[in-house]
Nucleic acid binder design. Structure first.
Length: 256
DNA sequence: ATGCCGTGGAAACCACGA
């Protein structure tokens, strides 16, 4: 069972590349972020023809998350986090897929920090942590996957000193991420590769990918019931080098 | 490290990303 997360940075612009990647890697479950498309413009027909069922939560211009299942239809459980009825940004989607609870998330960027966007990010992290506690208490196998917009440690960024004031690396954000993990979640890539520099994002600017000036901000977390089945984890780094690519690369795990 | 690239939407530029 291969489970992946991929911030596509615009699913309409990225569709040919997404279909190529699905064909090559054949992941069983995929979490997508940054659809940047309204609900009715999600390319469900093309994905169905590629063999994937889908649930999605679109939004005009920004955000947007989706969950794909190979040869199956994910069953939606929730499409927002509790705790702020006024929050209209489509950043969380949860579904049952092949006996696993899949939480697909696109955490707010939070820049500039400090400021209202940073405050929204911290509140969103708190709402996620509250919901994650409920998921753990269910005892079900759960995957929390997506673009967390959190650089957990210095090892996860090419030049830590340049990011100390950035909303992705600020102490409050890293502490909130550690606090989430402390509930009992496994950061899969780091668990299996404790000392490796493995990035999931490279800016489009200044030839960042060629210089390997990257960040690790896309994460796949497992509840204890799911972590027992963890076998491997990696990043499809080559996809970042394709023509008309996203600034993120697909990140994945395999479960037995 | 300053938005240099990329996407979307509105309007021939701007918001936003990380």
């Amino acid at each position: 069972m291969k489970i992946a997360t991929y911030n596509v940075n615009g699913i309409r612009a990225r569709l040919p590349l997404l279909l190529r990647w699905l064909e090559e890697q054949s992941p069983d479950i995929v979490c997508l972020q940054e659809l940047k498309a309204p609900q009715e413009q999600f390319p469900v027909t093309a994905l169905n023809e590629a063999g994937y069922g889908a649930v999605w939560h679109g939004q005009k211009s920004w955000n947007g998350v989706a969950i794909l299942g190979k040869d199956c239809d994910p069953v939606e459980r929730r499409r927002a986090l509790a705790g702020d009825p006024a929050d209209v940004q489509s950043r969380y989607l949860e579904a049952d897929v092949r006996g696993i609870v899949i939480g697909c998330l696109y955490l707010p960027n939070g820049n500039p920090a400090p400021g209202p966007k940073f405050d929204y990010k911290l509140r969103w992290l708190q709402r996620l942590t509250t919901h994650a506690r409920d998921l753990l208490d269910s005892g079900l196998p759960v995957v929390l996957a997506g673009d967390f917009n959190v650089i957990p440690e210095e090892l996860d960024v090419y030049a830590p000193e340049r990011w100390v004031d950035d909303a992705l690396f600020r102490p409050e954000v890293r502490a909130a991420y550690r606090n989430l993990l402390a509930q009992g979640w496994t950061d899969t890539l780091r668990a299996l590769h404790p000392d490796a520099r493995i990035y999931t994002f490279w800016k489009y600017l200044r030839n960042a990918f060629a210089r390997d000036a990257g960040l690790r901000i896309d994460h796949i977390l497992l509840s204890p019931a799911a972590a027992r089945c963890l076998r491997s984890a990696g990043v499809d780094r080559d996809v970042r080098g394709w023509e008309r690519t996203s600034d993120h690369a697909p990140t994945w795990i395999t479960l037995k």
